[in-house]
Design a protein around this nucleic acid. Sequence first.
DNA 1: GATTAAGCGAACGATATGTTCACTATTGCA
DNA 2: TGCAATAGTGAACATATCGTTCGCTTAATC
Lengths: 199, 199
Amino acid sequence: MPGPDRREARRDDRRSQRTRQLLGAALVALMLEQRYDTITVQEIIDRANVGRSTFYAHYLDKEDLLQSEIAALVTRLGDHVDPGAEGKWIIPSLELLRHVREHYALYRALVRGRAIEPVLKTMQAQLSRQIEVHLAGRLPPGPAPTVPLPVVAQYITGVLLALFQWWLDREMPESPEQLDDYFLQLVRPSVRATTGVEI
Amino acid sequence: MPGPDRREARRDDRRSQRTRQLLGAALVALMLEQRYDTITVQEIIDRANVGRSTFYAHYLDKEDLLQSEIAALVTRLGDHVDPGAEGKWIIPSLELLRHVREHYALYRALVRGRAIEPVLKTMQAQLSRQIEVHLAGRLPPGPAPTVPLPVVAQYITGVLLALFQWWLDREMPESPEQLDDYFLQLVRPSVRATTGVEI
DNA sequence: GATTAAGCGAACGATATGTTCACTATTGCA
DNA sequence: TGCAATAGTGAACATATCGTTCGCTTAATC
């Protein structure tokens, strides 16, 4: 039987917020230097200048701290991508790329610390679902797609994330607009040929 | 100062081989049940019925065992993909998909245990290099590519690995040939449009 | 300046790691 | 068959990290 969720013990004091911020920053800094899974709680609290018991008063464990950072990131991504909602774009590629550049430091840390995978998985799943719906709603009359829509959706998100990773690995010398241009050039002809949908 | 590499202590006795096989199989079995990083050495040796000191006589640690399994896998992949070498195909997609299906058990374990990422990274890097060279050698005269070749190469491998992951996540109901057909339908129009190369 | 919430850090039990060593089991060769 | 040589065994050990506890200190707020 799991005890009461210690996360509920998070208070809203200014000091608390400051402490959490210090811990998050320490984890990010450490991930730039070493793999996430080799980082110890001791290293985090030393770097943050925070007592051991304070750490555990705020987070269940190291994983909880990471998830908390990621959740904040994904929330901010959602703010960029969702509000226009229906019809504004089929694929929010440029919005996503701009968001990534804006939060470059954190994404870079996640990559260097080899903790980016769950984030990509989440993005992949959400985008894929969203795109599949949009595609289905725009299918022209006439011949059925020659490749199933879920495969096409997976394809589109796969391309976007592959370009994103390539961009991030190379420390993002190109602009988001440049990347988005590559993305559309690569994706448009295939989607047109297989489904008839114009992106 | 690191001591002498204990990996050199690996003997070539039949018993040794059997032991290593047992340990590898135990790790794979455990990865089907839980994340790689939550698995303990104790669990591995219990599952394999092997003594603690024997484990450390063969491997430096858990990571070393995993790397050893992955290395064997990648070697076998190379056997499938390299021999024809130059000119046989531009992208060894069907060969790769067949290889994956052949070693389904291990790939599935790597996915479930969340240890597939380094394997994909390796594949991505190798394929991408190979494909870029092949593309460069087949560029038609006339206008330069509208998307840089490294980006196109990254795109192609990204698509292949995205489809591969999708396939694997769904437990591979389709045949490798079917997947390869999807892959080519999706990739061909874009590569033609951006580089003029016919795949 | 008294009250209250947050942070501190030493100490603890629990668990995992990697090593050592005296002992046993298996293999293959004389 | 018997005997080295090699491989495996497992208890015991030192070490490290984890997550918790608790008495104390610090710093906001009224």
